[in-house]
């Protein structure tokens, strides 16, 4: 062999190279997309008034950044994070309760399925009347959309926990609480984090839908406003910022997962 790297070194190098190549490909897709879009707009193949263009989006972002863009972003992020956290915490509490009390689980099952299938946005007017036309209604909307999925996924995961593991722990005399904390919950960590990831998207849907219906600020508000006055560059800007918010939240959930897994290896 020409180089003097060990087998292990070569392997690690190959892994590193591959992830670098993936990143390169991803970046070039973004660059090509933006450049292509700009070119199509400049050359007159697409109407920038309808489709906007990267330079226009950049322009408006810079302009708005000097006024109130940060405030709109903050409002949306705040609503999303609160809605997301409430959805997850309530979902975890309800799913746990349904596991501890199988009777309640059986009773709840058909209701959950109906609630899951129901388009929660249809409840929009009702939610506004209940929670008032403001941030409250938007957060309730976000929770309404993400909560039922969380409950369904988690209680499904809890119910399908490996019964042999439970029997083993039981043979040591574990009570229900110990079974839950020492086996069911750690077993379902992947399910929990999977539903967290799904919930990011769902709470954003809830927040934007809520902002469409009632709001004086936030990216959803900006989108509705810009749509009405035909400012497609402002719509696109808001959508792109939403994408960035979603991406950052995914990453944070990923980090939280790593921390939780490490912790469970030590505490549970």
């Amino acid at each position: 062999m020409k180089n003097n790297l060990s087998y292990r070194g070569q392997y690690l190098l190959a892994v590193k190279r591959r992830s670098r190549r993936v990143l390169c490909a991803q970046l070039s897709i973004v660059v090509l997309f933006v450049a292509g879009w700009e070119w199509l707009a400049l050359a007159g193949f697409v109407d920038p008034f309808i489709f906007s263009s990267p330079s226009r989006i950049a322009d408006i972002t810079v302009t708005m950044a000097q006024t109130d863009l940060a405030y709109h972003i903050l409002v949306t992020v705040l609503e999303t994070v609160i809605g997301f956290a409430l959805g997850v915490v309530l979902g975890l509490i309800i799913a746990t309760w349904l596991w501890f009390c199988p009777f309640a689980g059986s009773v709840a099952a058909p209701f959950l399925v109906v609630l899951h299938a129901l388009p929660k946005i249809a409840l929009g007017p009702v939610i506004i009347v209940w929670a008032g036309a403001g941030m409250g209604a938007i957060i309730v909307m976000a929770v309404a959309i993400s909560l039922i999925v969380t409950v369904l996924e988690l209680s499904g995961g809890f119910a399908s926990t490996d019964s042999a593991l439970i029997a083993t722990i039981k043979s040591f005399g574990a009570d229900k609480k110990q079974i839950f904390l020492k086996v069911v919950l750690p077993c379902n960590l992947p399910v929990l984090f999977q539903s967290l990831k799904v919930n990011i998207g769902l709470s954003l849907v809830g927040v934007i839908a809520g902002e469409f219906l009632v709001s004086k600020a936030g990216l959803g508000y900006l989108i509705v406003y810009a749509g009405q006055v035909f400012r497609m560059d402002m719509v696109m800007m808001s959508v792109i910022i939403l994408g960035v918010i979603a991406f950052v939240m995914y990453r944070l959930v990923g980090i939280a997962r790593q921390i939780a897994e490490k912790k469970i290896n030590h505490d549970n």
Partner: peptide, 22 residues
């Protein structure tokens, strides 16, 4: 039981003491 049913997220040590822990 049939399988060893060790908890995969626990080290060997923390697996063998789980009964005592419970």
């Amino acid at each position: 039981l049939q399988r060893d049913n060790l908890l995969p997220w626990r080290s060997v040590w923390r697996n063998v003491v789980i009964g005592l822990e419970i």
